[in-house]
Design a protein around this nucleic acid. Structure first.
Lengths: 161, 161
DNA sequence: GGCATGATGTTATTTTATAACGTAGTCAGC
DNA sequence: GCTGACTACGTTATAAAATAACATCATGCC
């Protein structure tokens, strides 16, 4: 049973289970190897809806395994998960978060609350379209657009208005 | 005389001089202290149009001064410059770049070429508008939007099509 | 001049990430 | 089943990026 699941009023265990199920399906479909280690790291990334640092995951992993794992263990698993689109890296936080819609095309857009730390993936086509338009005007060939918006989520605005 | 100025066909010395002049004016206007050290770090950030890491700047600074400076020296100067809007931090690169339009409101948008390393500040209102729209729809209060688009600039596309 | 404030110096440490090399599973084809 | 190639994982060391804590120095104001 994973720790610290119910941050608000939703069944986070369900989020985790869902994410793992989708990951299993996607990797099977692609012939990618979602090994026990990688699966476990994915689960630890999904501990909450807050982006998690590699070393936080490392600590959890060490605790679970009863022995201290090496940073590379986690970084390699994360690399795989990011490649498969199961996890995103938040550049402005040096942290990782589970992808809300793996399998679908995603361009990596996030609303990050500076109060509670939660990050919500938005992937809105309008932002992507705006970026594509401007890039086209300048002859710039887009490869990987990163959008990370810091601010305050609705809940946190209500708490301290 | 700064090193490695003319990357392409523009007078980069002019870019640097310009940036310093504007910085002087802005800081004077605001009563902010652009000290010799900070001014020098700003100049080193402007070495090229490629984002530069703090430690690269540190190295240059040490060389200029003839003695090795401490990381904090550079980080503190950079912090000041970022606060004043004279320099931006590129989150996805852990690097810093001179602001193209200090004084004006800017939301920090960049096109970063993965081939030549150059980064161009765009600050396009359409991207900002798209972000604001989506944030408003979700009740998210925007504080600091970060947009960093990786890809290939026109020049580099021509070189290897 | 004296004092408050802000800037810089110095040393140590933390956090994040990668390099280099070796071992051990895993799967395909025979 | 065996072999060989490939991929994943373990281990140790190190690099890169950033900050903490505290001392000292400069600057501007009264």
């Amino acid at each position: 049973m994973p720790a610290a699941t119910n941050p608000a009023n939703h069944d986070h265990d369900h989020c985790i289970a869902d994410a793992l199920t989708r990951a299993d399906a996607l990797c099977a479909e692609r012939g990618a190897r979602l090994t026990a280690l990688r699966r476990q790291v994915l689960e630890l990334v999904w501990t909450s809806h807050r982006p998690r640092g590699a070393y936080a995951i490392l600590e959890d992993l060490s605790q679970r395994e009863g022995k201290s794992a090496a940073p590379l263990t986690v970084y390699r698993a994360l690399e795989f998960l990011v490649e498969q689109g199961l996890v995103h890296r938040l550049e402005s936080l040096n942290a990782y978060i589970g992808c809300a819609a793996p399998g679908a095309v995603h361009s990596g857009q996030f609303l990050v609350c500076e109060a509670c730390g939660n990050a919500v993936e938005i992937d809105d086509p309008r932002i992507r379209a705006a970026i594509d338009t401007i890039a086209a005007e300048r002859g710039f060939q887009v490869d990987r657009p990163t959008v990370e918006v810091r601010g305050r989520c609705t809940d946190c605005q209500e708490k301290t208005p």
